[in-house]
Design a protein around this nucleic acid. Sequence first.
DNA 1: GATTGATCATAC
DNA 2: GTATGATCAATC
Length: 234
Amino acid sequence: MSSASVVRGPRDVAELLARARAMAGRTVGELAAERSMYLPRDMRHAKGLVGILVEHTLGVEARDRSTAAPDFEHLGVELKTIPLDRRGRPRESTFVCHATLARIAETDWERSDVRRKLARVLWVPIESERELRLADRRIGAPLLWSPTGDEEAALRADWEELAGLVGVGAIERIDARMGHVLQLRPKAAHGRVRTIGHDEDGAPIEVGPRAFYLRATFTERIFGAASTLPTSVA
DNA sequence: GATTGATCATAC
DNA sequence: GTATGATCAATC
């Protein structure tokens, strides 16, 4: 494999999986060196960097960002890295997608960005103990996942509750404690960012941008169900 | 220790 | 400025 070359997109899911499996056991430092990517010492300045690195390594191509299409659009597969602790449990919630507050009331679960993104996900675990240097973190075995019937029902219920509240102008009453598996949380470069929402009367109001996230308790079950870990979390 | 709200980097 | 890639850090 030549260094820093652009990786072409995988032809099919089998090729994508083969590439992902080939990454397993390698370190973030190795992958970064191949792609001539600089790794900051401080994780504070490296948020999202491993995600981009894995995208490039697997061949996610530049694409239209104006629609919420999955990373591998022609395969219908979304790529997500997920930080795991030494017990194999997710250390963080998982960003799903931006919430289009002004328009969310016009859609439904079936046509939602959340459902489209999560229809099929290639999870790439990253060994992520806090004290482990970024370059030394290893890539784990990938997992191609689609929601089970129960999982989709849970996602749908949360989405409908949250989107419903946004739709009736009650966004200010939503906080991250809502949602059993799916949350709506702030998502912005900094605290002064504002976007347009609507109040109860349909009048435009300025609110902080929000995004959908999967709770760690939800993603933990995904890995628990398929995991080869010696003990699952009772 | 887990969770919520805030924040950081990059592409366009 | 918006959206995607996430993790940090204050708080519970």
